[in-house]
Design a protein around this nucleic acid. Structure first.
Length: 479
DNA sequence: TTTTGAGTTGTTCGA
DNA sequence: GTCGAACAACTCAAA
């Protein structure tokens, strides 16, 4: 039996724990392929930072496949045309892939199933990028959950932690390889300005890098996760989100390691549960988007469609550039710009600031994050922005307006994080670094801070902005 | 069937 | 300085 099976890589850019790849390899020759499809439509293609990651993740996958004597065939164009064409060229008898849950995916997969069936070719989807299939979780009334806690409780009740699969021992290669294009031709890297300079020292996209990040987290950070995850000046989070997004690590692999660890070290049970709940939020977001495909565009709570947003383009620009005059907000926005990442605690603060202090629509924040985050993910991005704006599922209540100064004092007490990302404030004493505009003249002078010159005055005044936000939110009325 | 209580991440105010 | 209450409306499951 020499007819090959096509393995279509999507956002599962790894070799281990891929049931579809294992099934293909057990059967005969495998042709691994990746199709770069850039359909029209909002959020149909990765943003800039995310594209950088994709390039390097594909490059790592290519290398891993070559080490196995295999290849990655890269093509570009509409999947609905390219995939059937590749099948005909290679005489493949089946196509395997991982299921996608994004809007439009079910339709595409159904269409591929039919098109390929007409060629006598089987199209098989395998689960793997989520812990729970959306169809498997629902309320007693049979509706999707809208509240996280009962959602996650039910997930954990039906959880049967399975051993992740190893990568196939070998990938039998076909008699002949179809043509592919070089990875560089996809033009995923930044041009003409390489704003990602030095990122290769910060991140290692790909399966090996994901394993390394996982080991580091398990070894250094899991035990203190519940407390340290909130402190942006400490490496207390896993930083695994981009790996999960592109599938260099499967959630099953991650959960398995964490569960095993907490089994061996029962005193870390609470830390493990806390971390797993974050994976739960990832599941929750993906399930929500699966059931409510409009989430990236329309407020989950329709009442918000009439919200009196009023922020200015200038305010948006100040926010994007980290020039709001609120040090924690500015530190976060600059971390994002310089690294493609932002600490989770700070994401909440800058999100609240955009929606509530600046009264800019959450979609504007979502758009910026889409372009600048290496872990930009349609489901997580939409759900988290809606959460912080107060219009999402199980969202933050309208009156929860983060005070950026207090958040700084509480979670970055010594100003470590602020000093790292807002160097013009680095010489200020911790007591004043969270509120430079309230610091005495001589303190500012001594630290060479010239407000309005090398660091901005606050673009809005906290108390007034908070009042305006509460008024705007109350204007939605109770009915 | 109806009722009840709890629900990721906060802040402010007044006692 | 600390502490509890108030700041909506709605979802979900258990009583």
């Amino acid at each position: 039996m020499n007819s090959p099976i096509l393995y279509w890589f999507r956002r599962d850019l790894r070799l281990s724990d891929l049931p579809g790849l294992c099934a293909a390899a057990a059967h005969g020759p495998v042709i691994p392929c990746y199709i770069h499809d850039t359909p029209d439509g909002d959020y149909a293609s990765p943003g800039g930072a995310s594209a950088w990651w994709l390039h390097h993740n594909l490059s790592a996958l290519e290398a891993a496949l070559e080490q196995q004597g295999s290849r990655l065939i890269i093509r570009s164009g509409p999947v609905r045309k390219i995939l059937p064409a590749l099948v005909e060229e290679t005489g493949a008898t089946a196509v395997h892939c991982s299921r996608s849950y994004d809007p439009g995916a079910a339709e595409l997969e159904a269409q591929l199933h039919d098109t390929l069936a007409q060629l006598g070719v089987a199209f098989k989807r395998f689960p793997g990028s989520l812990l729970f299939e959306p169809e498997a979780v629902s309320t007693q009334a049979g509706t999707p959950f809208r509240v996280f806690t009962p959602f996650w409780r039910q997930c954990r009740q039906q959880w049967e932690p399975a051993q992740p699969l190893a990568a196939p021992a070998e990938l039998p290669h076909p008699d002949a390889w179809p043509e592919g294009m070089p990875l560089d031709a996809l033009q995923l890297l930044p041009t003409p300005v390489n704003w990602a300079q030095g990122w290769e020292n910060l991140w290692q996209p790909g399966e090996a890098g994901a394993q390394k990040a996982l080991d580091t987290f398990m070894h250094n950070a899991l035990a203190d996760y519940p407390e340290h995850r909130d402190i942006p000046g400490v490496d207390g989070t896993s930083r695994l989100s981009p790996h999960l997004h592109f599938g260099a690590l499967s959630p099953r692999q991650l959960a398995h390691v964490v569960l095993q660890h907490s089994h061996l070290q029962p005193e870390q049970q609470a830390s493990a549960d806390k971390f797993l709940a974050e994976l739960g939020w990832r599941e929750f977001s993906h399930h929500l988007l699966f059931h409510f495909s409009g989430l990236p565009h329309e407020s989950f709570n329709e009442r918000f469609e009439g919200f009196p947003w009023q922020g200015s383009p200038a305010a948006l620009k100040s926010w994007q550039q980290g020039q709001t005059g609120y040090p924690l907000v500015d530190a976060g926005m600059r971390e994002l710009w310089h690294t493609g990442y932002m600490h989770n605690r700070v994401r909440m603060v800058v999100g609240s600031f955009l929606c509530k202090h600046l009264l800019l629509p959450w979609q504007a924040g979502q758009r910026w994050f889409w372009d600048t985050l290496v872990d930009a993910d349609l489901a997580n991005n939409a759900c988290s922005w809606q959460w912080v704006a107060g219009c999402g599922a199980d969202a933050a209540p309208y009156f929860r307006v983060f005070n950026p100064t207090l958040q700084g004092r509480k979670f970055d007490p010594e100003g470590d994080y602020i000093r790292r990302w807002v160097p013009e404030l680095a010489a200020l004493p911790s007591k004043h670094i969270h509120e430079p505009h309230a610091a005495p003249e001589n303190v500012l002078a001594k630290a060479s801070v010239k407000l309005g010159q090398n660091y901005p005055y606050p673009i809005v005044e906290h108390r007034a902005a908070r009042e305006a936000a509460l008024t705007a939110y109350q204007s939605l009325g109770s009915k």
